[in-house]
Design a binder for these strands. Structure first.
Lengths: 207, 207
DNA sequence: CTCAATCTGATACCGAGCATCAGAAACATG
DNA sequence: CATGTTTCTGATGCTCGGTATCAGATTGAG
């Protein structure tokens, strides 16, 4: 370690800075290790010290990378929410809000089909661990906040008026359907594709 | 206390036992004190020791009444969920699932109208405190579990088949609408009645 | 090379929650 | 009333997540 990290040739150094790259690398490794340990011994059965020790970091430093233990496996969801929101705004205006939401969720269904095994155990852990499930809901709440403006636009109402509950209700309901579909998907071991279950779930609402 | 509680005449003694009554009384007082302190100084700004001290109980004993700090203000929601589920099953079969859900929620809207001020500060605290919000979601999840069977019955599907996402989606979406309405209600300071906002929210879904 | 900014580990601290234990109170007996 | 059993209580100590502080090492700019 002393040798490999020692002045890695100034020619290959990028403008983003060396320190920054290290940070990204470490973050990625922490997530990797944490995810593995959580699946192996459960979320509550794994201590932060354990993760820190395995990564080769002190507890204090680890908390500088991730504010909470949950964030080590949930932070990725923040980015995912952004992708969904992006996909939503990209849908044509010819689609109604509900249909557009359904299509935006394809970001998720496609990702799941590419790595079903991994996603399955991940979601299973999320649903079986109370503290994680709780945080997961908060993430979904942040998703809702991201989706809301575009839904408001499509409904033709202003987004920041309290008594306009439409956008909030619509995006929240859609996420509830997504949750229902995900729950069903996990429950049947991924037998029925997520996209199908999502179609059923969201179809139930439009009759 | 030594006199009043001393063999209180076996004629007036109730079958529920004296010990049981004490337990109920203490629980109620804890909730009262906790709620007051939480609203006064915030949820995180109040320690369990503080509550225990004010009630005149030790920390350990307090945790025998309520498993977690959050439960001291959220336990009541469990019962509320039962009331909603009860109201739901009481709705006539002529109503569709969505309409029946809307009507079942009147249990809440009516309760809110009876004590708006108190409910408002309570909900505000719930939404502003991250840890409480998270637990609140879990409660709603338990509500969903309570509503699901009846919705499944009304949809004519069996409740325990994983790929039947309909009941879960419907009840989840309804609760999302309830949440949206509650959020809007708090945001506008209770100016618009909760029932009206709930009508709008749930109406958005049926077009 | 030098100096400021950042990062790190060590340490101490706080609060929630759990486990244990001796003593006190409540209950069901005779 | 006296008894023994059960349950509750308070006290203590512990684990773990999370925060704050501080001296020393590392990075990066001038």
């Amino acid at each position: 370690m002393t040798d490999s990290a020692r002045t890695p040739a100034r020619s290959a150094t990028k403008p983003p800075g060396l320190r920054e790259r290290m940070r990204v690398t470490v973050r990625k490794e922490v997530v990797e290790v944490a995810l593995r340990l959580f699946i192996e011994q459960g979320f509550d059965g794994t201590t932060v010290d354990q993760i820190a020790g395995e990564v080769g970091l002190s507890r204090a430093s680890l908390f500088r990378y991730f504010g909470t233990k949950e964030d080590m496996v949930l932070q990725g969801l923040e980015e995912t929410g952004g992708q969904i929101a992006e996909a939503l705004t990209a849908r044509p205006d010819t689609e109604g809000p509900w249909e557009a939401l359904r299509r935006a969720f394809d970001v998720l269904t496609q990702a799941n089909e590419q790595a079903p095994e991994q996603t399955l155990s991940y979601l299973r852990m999320l649903q079986e661990t109370p503290s994680l499930r709780a945080r997961h809901f908060e993430k979904q709440l942040s998703w809702q906040a991201m989706l809301e403006p575009e839904i408001a636009r499509r409904l033709g109402v202003s987004a920041d008026q309290p008594e306009e509950v439409g956008p909030n209700a619509l995006s929240g309901a859609a996420l509830a359907c997504l949750d229902a579909a995900a729950t069903g998907w996990v429950a049947c071991g991924g037998a029925v594709p997520l996209a199908v279950l999502l179609d059923r779930a969201m179809g139930t609402l439009t009759e």
